[in-house]
């Protein structure tokens, strides 16, 4: 389960060798915005070598590459990174299904050349334009590599010609559309980072909002925000206890040959069972832990 995804600059060796100590479920090594054009090659080599030599344990590794329209950096990024088999590639400014297919085909070629089973490296498209938001569903179902979609609020608000605020009213539509598209496609969906790194309380409010809308987890640009995100996106003990009660009640009903059952005065129907299974799956995957 990915509750938190932490962006780390691909040109910072200290962050690369310590990527797994911050408690994030996934880290995103950034070759795009965090790296100036004259450092793109150095960052690419650093990230490649980090993937080659470091053991990140249970922390999932994602690499954010440059967008397809930028100076051909994207293909050089993939040439270097795909042979090291990160869990996922995060392509940027994804606007439609063709973008995803072009990328996936290129990844397939590298995988074949490197002797890696086709489709090993997955995709988590970063959707950060008005067009991308409108096409979120077609992006989510464009290719089998796509396991999740990711909302980028900063570039999106620039594209929408509005100001990004802490309250996030300006991206409310995009958030809802992204969640709906992802869930319709049966994929995970991740929320944009909360960018005020010194506002721990604001982070919690924003993460709770994202969770309430249906996001699977949330990204961060600050290691100090990881703990808060993990706590918000972990099931509470009360939720876990209730989920186990639901499953027990279902089991008991089956043994007794009952069709319909109730728990705490409420009918247990299919959505409640589905939700209980989701909570238990999440709980099991994080073993009840919080930040670290």
């Amino acid at each position: 389960m990915r509750r938190s995804m932490l962006f780390l600059p691909g040109n910072n060796p200290n962050m690369l060798i310590n990527a797994d100590v911050f408690g994030a479920d996934a880290v995103i090594f950034d070759l795009e915005d965090a790296v100036s054009p004259d450092e793109k090659d150095a960052a690419r080599i650093l990230v490649r070598n980090a993937l080659k030599y470091m053991d990140y344990g249970n922390t999932e590794i994602v690499v954010r590459i440059n967008s397809i329209d930028e100076n051909g950096f994207w293909s050089k990024d993939l040439d270097e990174i795909i042979p090291l088999k990160p869990s996922m590639i995060m392509p940027t400014k994804v606007t439609n299904a063709e973008y995803v297919k072009k990328l996936s085909d290129y990844m397939t070629a590298i995988e074949q050349k490197s002797g890696i089973p086709e489709g090993t490296v997955k995709l988590i498209p970063l959707i950060e334009t008005a067009m991308g938001v409108e096409n979120a569903y077609e992006i989510a179902v464009a290719d089998e590599r796509v396991v999740a979609i990711f909302l980028g609020g900063e570039d999106l608000t620039a594209d929408l010609c509005c100001v990004r605020t802490k309250e996030g009213d300006e991206i409310f539509y995009a958030r809802c559309r992204m969640v709906n598209a992802a869930r319709a496609a049966g994929k995970d969906v991740y929320d944009t980072p909360f960018t005020d790194v010194n506002d721990d309380e604001g982070l919690i409010v924003d993460a709770k909002k994202a969770k309430s809308l249906g996001f699977t987890g949330k990204a961060s640009i600050a290691p100090r925000h990881v703990k808060g995100i993990n706590e918000v996106f972990s099931p509470t003990q009360e939720e876990v206890d209730y989920a186990y009660e639901v499953l027990e009640a279902i089991e008991t009903a089956k043994k007794q040959g009952k069709g319909a059952i109730s728990l705490r005065g409420k009918m247990i129907d299919a959505p409640i069972v589905l939700r209980a299974n989701q909570v238990i799956a999440a709980y099991e995957s994080i073993k009840g832990g919080s930040a670290r």
């Binding site: 200290n14 962050m15 310590n18 100590v21 911050f22 600050a222 290691p223 100090r224």
Partner: peptide
């Protein structure tokens, strides 16, 4: 000042 280094904070 306390450190802002994320590793130091861990």
């Amino acid at each position: 000042k306390i450190t802002r280094d994320p590793v130091g904070l861990v």
